[in-house]
């Protein structure tokens, strides 16, 4: 186990009766990466993360964090780790301040350090105004923000997130993504592993992708490699005016463009190539003689890749 990979699964297997949830999973998570763990429901994502966070025991194989085997040395393994597994329930009789104090004391942090970190973190997750209210009265979104905040206590080097936006309303999801982006931007020395089945979320946040199905690893690579390996990438162009045939024709003739289709008030542009080609395409579209008010990459390329890999693995 090298420091190059703070998280590592080695031949991990988990059986629930006759059902094999994780089947010989070997996976290394690169240091300082934000890795999205993708897979359909029942693929073994949550089970793997629960083994990693010492919530369940593997039938065989090992899970390591920072070189420590979780099952044998949970205390050492989880020392520098922040976790958000599903939507945890907190002790309803405690306030966020008291919860942070409790968990801070578990970590062995000094009282002053807990206090200063708690204020800073609650500010970051936009829960400072609720610091002394009982968590029992909080909504799911608020509890999830507390959960993300708690994962930052004691300056972790590794954060494990199991579907952190699951069950949240669209606004809650957007807020959570914003918080995760800020966490990532504030500290580049963090290794984050996040399970999800939302392509746009993973596209938006992650720089590496690991895909599993039936508890087996299908892919583990840089996001860019995964996307460029895909046949096409999709760029969504939003002209100021309603798209017309002339616009489609002009975009369709640009280099690396495979096709341009009208989708309501937007144009879906399928293109070949990597980030450099995409940047060039953005410049070319901006230089066309009709005003454009927005351009972004669609998660479709990742989705296409995901679906084809899942189909192959059946």
């Amino acid at each position: 186990m090298t420091s190059e990979y703070p998280i590592e699964f080695v031949s991990l297997r988990k059986e629930f009766g006759s059902f094999v949830a994780v089947n010989d999973l070997s996976l290394q998570i690169k240091k300082n990466s934000f890795t999205g763990l993708l897979g359909p429901n029942g693929a073994g994502k949550s089970t793997s993360l629960k083994i990693l966070t010492h919530l369940i025991h593997a039938t065989s194989g090992e899970a390591y964090i920072n070189g420590y085997e979780v099952d044998k040395n949970p205390k050492q393994a989880l020392q520098g780790v922040g976790t958000v597994v599903e939507t945890p329930e907190f002790y309803g009789y405690l306030s966020p301040n008291e919860t942070f104090r409790y968990i801070g004391e578990i970590f062995g942090m000094k009282r002053e350090s807990i206090q200063s970190q708690t204020s800073e973190i609650l500010e970051k997750v936009k829960m400072a105004d609720w610091a002394d209210k009982k968590i029992g009265t909080f909504s799911k979104g608020m509890r999830q923000r507390i959960s993300i905040g708690l994962s930052l206590l004691n300056d972790p080097s590794v954060i494990i997130l199991d579907e952190p936006t699951s069950g949240l309303d669209p606004r809650g999801m957007a807020e959570m993504r914003e918080i995760l982006k800020n966490i990532r931007n504030d500290n580049n020395n963090l290794t984050i592993l996040m399970s999800s089945h939302m392509m746009h979320e993973v596209s938006d946040l992650c720089d590496r992708i690991a895909m599993i199905n039936h508890g087996t690893l299908l892919l583990n690579d840089d996001f860019e490699n995964v996307i460029s390996d895909s046949d096409t990438r999709v760029v969504i162009v939003r002209p100021l005016e309603t798209p017309n045939d002339d616009m489609l024709d002009k975009i369709g003739r640009l280099s690396n463009v495979v096709s341009a289709e009208r989708m309501g008030g937007e144009i879906n542009v399928r293109m070949k190539g990597g980030n450099e080609e995409m940047a060039a395409l953005f410049r070319q579209i901006a230089a066309l003689d009709f005003p454009v008010c927005g351009m972004s990459e669609s998660a479709n390329a990742l989705e296409d890749k995901y679906l084809s890999l899942i189909k192959e693995s059946r």
Binding site: K75, L78, F90, I103, I106
Partner: peptide, 15 residues
């Protein structure tokens, strides 16, 4: 039952 294990058991503490 109350799922607070998701908070406590995932911390560096022995059972």
């Amino acid at each position: 039952e109350e799922r607070t294990a998701l908070v406590l058991f995932t911390k560096p503490i022995k059972k």
